[in-house]
Amino acid sequence: MSNADLIRSARFRQEREGDWRRLSDLVDKAEGQGLHRMSFQEARDLADLYRQATTSLSIAREISLDRGLLDYLEALTSRAYLCVYAPQQRLGGIIRRFLTTGGPQAMRASWRVILMGFLCMTAGAVAGYFFYFDNPEWFYVFMPSELSGGRGPDASTEFLRASIYGEDSGSGLGAFATYLFSHNTRIAIFVFGLGAFLCAPTILLVFYNGLILGVFYALYIDRGLGWDMFGWLSIHGVTELSAICIACAGGLKLGLAVLFPGHQTRRAALRAAGHDAVKLALIAAMMLVVAALLEGFGRQLIQDRTTRTAVGWGVGGLWLLWFALGGRKRP
């Protein structure tokens, strides 16, 4: 059939069909192998042909009534769009940027909510402490029995001392794994995940966790083992409890965005808050892993009270240094 016989939109298609087919091949290649493996020539052609295809599409929508052609162009342009606008970052670069700038900056930007997280836990701990001295029976109310492991107001002081300095059941890798899945990790995940549900569950959970800490600590002070307990808790607790508070801050950020979106829509506020919240969650996760390492290995190897305290607060200080100094622009 000669060219003159064709209607306008058919000629339009005939002139561009070759380019579309080439684009289709390039898109298949990009999807199969990834953009990184394509040659410079091909990558440039992909971007060029994609832009031509978007032009073709918008013309075709105006001049053509050929359903088959419109569907094809629509699908082709969409596929090409998804290829062209693929994330360009490399994995290594992402991790490095998070560690050097993103993480600490997010921590500094959300210091208010983090403070709220710490306050929740401290308030719980103080309350628990006074509850215990009010009446030791409160210990049984707050402390889940599987967590106390026989440690309670009716246990002997000798038993309590042994639980601080004795060998735990496992050690090394096994203990590390066990502790990672201990109570606190679960609490941290819950606390973050529940945050988006209007803050209240997060605050309650952290407060309750503080209560447990408070009654537990009061028990040891009551027996005159306060400083020994301090060391025992410090070595991993400084990192671990901070992690819970930071996870709590992440959750609170999401919840606050839902409760008080300001002049944005709730959806937009949630998106904006998600930026920093997820970084807080990642930092909390890292800290929990470190805490589990300290708990699984460190606490078995170091039996001395002072060293335990020093190691615990030393690691805590390192975290603080990272948060305070990481990612600051040089003047």
């Binding site: 064709l6 209607i7 088959g68």
Partner: peptide, 13 residues
């Protein structure tokens, strides 16, 4: 859903 581009024949031809 990923769209699937299939170029059909031009029926006016």
């Amino acid at each position: 859903h990923l769209p699937k581009p299939i170029l059909l024949q031009d029926m006016s031809k």
